[in-house]
Design a protein around this nucleic acid. Sequence first.
DNA 1: TGATATAATATGTCTAGTTGTATAGTTATA
DNA 2: TATAACTATACAACTAGACATATTATATCA
Lengths: 242, 242
Amino acid sequence: MNDRPKGRRKTPVWQAIAAHLRGDIAEGRYKAGDRLPTESRLAERFGVNRHTVRHALAHLIQEGLVRTRRGSGAFVAATPTDYPIGGRMRFHENLLAAGRLPEKRILQIENRAATPGEARALAVPEGGYICAYHGLSLADGQPIALFESLFPVSRLPGIDVALQQTRGVTQALDLVGITDFVRVSTRLTAVLADATQALHLHLQEGDPLLRTTGVNAVPDGAPVEFGRTWFAGDRVTLTLDG
Amino acid sequence: MNDRPKGRRKTPVWQAIAAHLRGDIAEGRYKAGDRLPTESRLAERFGVNRHTVRHALAHLIQEGLVRTRRGSGAFVAATPTDYPIGGRMRFHENLLAAGRLPEKRILQIENRAATPGEARALAVPEGGYICAYHGLSLADGQPIALFESLFPVSRLPGIDVALQQTRGVTQALDLVGITDFVRVSTRLTAVLADATQALHLHLQEGDPLLRTTGVNAVPDGAPVEFGRTWFAGDRVTLTLDG
DNA sequence: TGATATAATATGTCTAGTTGTATAGTTATA
DNA sequence: TATAACTATACAACTAGACATATTATATCA
């Protein structure tokens, strides 16, 4: 790991800069989520070319200490923490029990036509309308998962409004009269993050995601939710309860 | 070689967004005439700046898939056709039923000797002459598919002239006395567009194509057409009835 | 009720700033 | 003198914000 060259006289400038920034972060000058000065300013401050600063930043990125966003800046990365989630998948309760602060960010709620596949999964007529709920789950401010939940509006009138008002799927379903439901199917696969997923989850495009596809239904059998979730693979461990 | 430690490609974000929306439209999430979410909402949904969404939309507009009205919104201009597979594929009727303007552009019609494989598929003697009909199918001016249809001239005298005069295979066959036919085999694969295919279909080389290979025959069993079609994967959805 | 002014939205355009990438040139050093 | 480290420049991709302009919904008044 110590890739210091044999000649111990001089350390490259970029390594010195990286060490300096590392120290700034370590002693709290820049805290998690803070934006670092722009590359140009850092170049001025250290009296070097912008490329040299970039070389240093690239190292910090590889270490996972810093994350950059094109056009926006460089940010101190939050410390990745593995997080266990139960088989019942009650996001809020699990996180609260683990002493972390759950948060849900709504990206989109819209009523639209169902695709043939979605119609089949939700047992609605082809072309029938569904409510699509797209969002981002976070823990302590760090993105954990992207999700898309589909609901049959015909059987769940007012679900779109309920989703706006509540904190989670369970509560929203309760608001429209679904007090209990069971998971009737779950599928797991690994996929690669595309560009937009990577943006939301603060990952690189091509990083692995854990995708779950599942259907929840009321006890007598009618599906009430068709959900897909993409977990950031290296931040989440899914544990199935036995 | 080791410039990328992990397999991570780089696609511009706007291209990923354009592809996503294209897929949404192709799958029927947004149908012809539907209004897309506003640029601001899409920006939230994909986690990018509004300008990046606009860049993606501009591309879809250039493709003719989306049209915008200032102050009003962005609308789906043309829905990729749901194309029923199996039974009888009647290009013109399908498109007309979907409220679109079908068009067929003849690239080449020639009589030539059949290759061994073609001879077998059409049940003609090896080296027998066939009529090769090569063309491009469009809907509302947008290229949908490349096709190559082969006919046994021995059993269908005048088919070459009939193809020149009519609008489609069905009508041409009718002109030479084939009033009804059924599809006896269909095969589906995914291939990548080569340079010339991409040129005709207004795609990029390497974009995915859906290739169907099929044989039509008169009800008693003699083949009358051996056809191959390359659909632009983004613009067509093949639907299996059943 | 109906016409109209007003406010809220939506797209179109512009300017400016930041990171990402590519190419070429300079300098120190082994 | 060959190579790695660094400089210099230019452009592409994306973010951020402000403002103009067209459309649509809402409120108001006769």
